[in-house]
Design a binder for these strands. Structure first.
Lengths: 196, 196
DNA sequence: TTTTAAAATGAGCGATCGCTTATTTATTTT
DNA sequence: AAAATAAATAAGCGATCGCTCATTTTAAAA
């Protein structure tokens, strides 16, 4: 019997990510994807049940990779400042190295396909951060009441700068690049906010 | 001659906002909008050139209202802490009072229709904030180098909490409500980060 | 009351949508 | 070499898309 051509399914995934990253979900269609990936529309339905399944599968797969990358070289036993910086660095590296995937994820976020994605990210965050933050509090490095407030103060500034960077645009209207220097400046503000 | 029925165009706008806020752009269509608004599809094209013009018009209109609401009771001469708090309060009130519009704006953000929206918001922010921040620096209340960093530290935490609130979900998985108490807690962190 | 002109509409156009089916192609097993 | 089987495809289905047109409705102007 004939075996699956892995190049085909990889091409389908890759082109789907590129198309959604570029034009958004509202212009994304199976016929156009098939043409772009160099396969027949019917071929896509060998690998995926329907359009929804296609998108959900890719979202799930990329979310797992995305979260894993966020915690590379991270250890909950790290000091607060070191651990948070590792997560910041990983987040920024991800945005730069995998631009398409990050734009894709951003387009998905506010759609029905983004529900599971957000839940998975939240759970993973809670798991990893739970111990990390608990340790930091135990050591008397930081203080806080609500986990949501911690997340908002510790990560939201970075995520906003990453968005500015991805869009190549910002408040001032000028082009914006997320340099290590700017990351450091922002990080110092955040540390000041959270430290006792 | 016959005059335009303002109820009709208002109904079209309102239903468009509700539909996009609820199901997102990818499921939004003119025929369904017409049915929902109780008019003929052709009627919509009396008021708007095409689908793109319809969405762009609503985005522009609501963005102006949205930005205006953000600077209600705000004066660039205010002390830093007071001025920033006014903007925070306005942002939170907007999310609570005009839920549909805020969800609509959020769905639009990462689409092609969101480009002008973002630019307009950025410009308005830069104008209002320019003087305000300059005054605060002159008075020695705060210090910072980059406008983008200021924005990221001063507003991103609040905007993240607003998103949690809108989605009724957050890091922990539990339902999340943006109370005044949580806003205050977060605000104190941010002030600590920005004050000299 | 009649005329006039724009608002409003129902029906439906061509194009594209997600998806299926009948058939062919490729590769392993016999 | 023949049989077996799943991958892959071209063609196109019904449904829906954005949008238009011929016609009717409405209310001000004459």
């Amino acid at each position: 019997m004939r075996y699956r051509d892995e190049n085909k399914v990889q091409s389908i995934k890759q082109k789907a990510i590129e198309m959604i990253a570029g034009e958004g979900l509202e212009n994304f269609g199976i016929n156009r994807l098939a043409k772009s990936a160099g396969v027949s529309p019917a071929t896509i339905y060998i690998y995926y049940k329907d359009k929804e399944d296609l998108i959900n599968s890719i979202v799930q797969e990329e979310t797992e990779k995305w979260v894993a990358a966020l915690f590379r070289n991270f250890d909950p036993e790290m000091s607060f400042e070191e651990g948070l910086w590792v997560q910041w660095k990983n987040r920024a590296d991800s945005a730069i190295k995998h631009r398409d995937v990050n734009l894709f994820m951003e387009k998905i976020r506010n759609t029905s396909y983004g529900k599971d994605q957000q839940i998975k990210i939240s759970q993973c965050m809670a798991n990893f951060m739970g111990d990390f933050v608990k340790n930091a509090v135990k050591r008397g490095e930081i203080t806080f009441n609500t986990l949501e407030v911690y997340w908002a103060v510790a990560f939201a500034p970075l995520y906003t700068l990453v968005k500015f960077h991805q869009e190549g645009r910002s408040i001032s209207g000028r082009s914006f690049k997320l340099t290590e220097e700017i990351m450091r400046e922002t990080f110092n503000h955040v540390i000041k906010a959270l430290k006792k």
